[in-house]
């Protein structure tokens, strides 16, 4: 068993493109759920439109990548507006149902065989993201590797995550500046009690809409990065669990904190990949009985997700505020 390799895999996952995407999705959710108290169960819908907006623009319509990026972002904002106008005045639980339904409807429509001509349907879509990699400042020969030991990336990967982490830093800073302001105070007051905010003259609908657009747009950006990273999009990559992974990351790190979603996403991918690599190595150990090897073989991914779920359950039991949250805040609800 080679713990160097296990650690390298885990560290690469924790800072790689997947973690960047999850972190952005969770930052968006944090604006919705953490700061404004909106239970968005369809964050993946924003990612999907970001990814497909980019991919389809380039692959089907032949537009430039940058036009595709803008269209991806625009579509995710449009989804926020379309979802928000009819549902934000309703009961918060209806909003939750509407978001999960909308995300699923879009995924099924895009992935249907009728949509093959436009989106590739179930066949997925791929395009040339060369315009992005042309800007790559890192030499990207077949031998070029960046990192230490087993924690290393290719030049292309490094370029994606450089851009990704820079965006995370910028967006986190913007969210910090917004939320510490009186604007953020209104958001939190809406989370605590909408009617109190209303009674003091705050236009609750407008603030919720602003939060929905901001968080949805950040989700869309995560989708755009996903599309660029994989040079395409596949409907199966946008199943509802993506939203719940983002919630897992958010709760792990601590909702309504500035760094919680980022920390949570890093940790989520580190744990998930560490466990999966560990199990994969374990399955090939000679001392393991054959039956156990057979059981593990191919199931490492599922088991690792289950273990992350277990970690989340334990966290909720022993540190429900997440890693960075404030425990007294959490316990006020019970009074």
């Amino acid at each position: 068993m080679d713990f160097d390799i296990i650690f390298g895999n885990a560290a690469r996952a924790a800072f790689g493109p997947e973690a960047v995407i999850l972190a952005l999705a969770a930052i968006g959710l944090n604006v919705h759920f953490g700061f404004t108290g909106m239970l968005n169960c369809g964050q993946v819908g924003f990612l999907l439109l970001g990814a497909y907006g980019t991919s389809v623009s380039v692959a089907t319509f032949g537009w430039s990548l940058w036009a595709g990026v803008l269209i991806g972002l625009f579509l995710s904002l449009a989804l926020a507006a379309a979802l928000g106008f009819p549902t934000l005045r309703l009961n918060p639980l209806l909003f939750a149902i509407a978001t999960i339904a909308a995300a699923e409807i879009i995924r099924i429509l895009i992935g249907s065989t009728d949509a093959i001509g436009l989106t590739g349907g179930p066949l997925s879509v791929s395009f040339d993201a060369g315009a992005f990699y042309d800007l790559n400042p890192y030499p990207d020969g077949p031998q070029d590797r960046y990192g230490i030991g087993t924690f290393e990336f290719t030049g292309q990967q490094l370029w994606v995550i450089t851009v990704g982490w820079a965006l995370i830093a910028l967006i986190s800073l913007a969210i910090f500046l917004l939320v510490r302001s009186p604007w953020g105070r209104v958001l939190k007051s809406i989370r605590e009690d909408e009617d109190a905010a209303r009674s003091l003259g705050k236009n609750v609908f407008s603030y919720k809409m602003q939060a929905l657009l901001i968080g949805g747009g950040i989700g869309g950006l995560a989708g755009v990065i996903d599309a660029i990273k994989t040079s395409g999009a596949d409907p199966n990559g946008f199943r509802p669990q993506v939203t719940f992974f983002a919630y897992a990351a958010l709760l792990l790190g601590g909702a309504a904190t500035y760094l919680g979603p980022v920390l949570g996403a890093v940790l989520f991918w580190f744990l998930r990949e560490w466990i999966e690599s560990f199990l994969r190595q374990l399955a090939s150990e000679s001392w393991l009985p054959g039956a156990a090897s057979d059981f593990l073989d191919g199931a490492e991914g599922i088991i690792s997700v289950a273990m992350v779920g277990l970690a989340l359950v334990l966290l909720m039991l022993f540190r429900p505020q997440g890693l960075t949250g404030n425990r007294t805040e959490l316990h006020l609800d019970a009074r």
Binding site: S181, P182, W183, R185, V186, K188, E192, D193, A197, L332
Partner: peptide, 20 residues
């Protein structure tokens, strides 16, 4: 507003805030 500080609760009441 339980998870806002006492001072933030009162500040929320101020009308016409540019920062909102």
């Amino acid at each position: 507003l339980a998870k806002l500080t006492v001072i933030d609760n009162v500040l929320l009441g101020a009308p016409g805030q540019a920062g909102e």
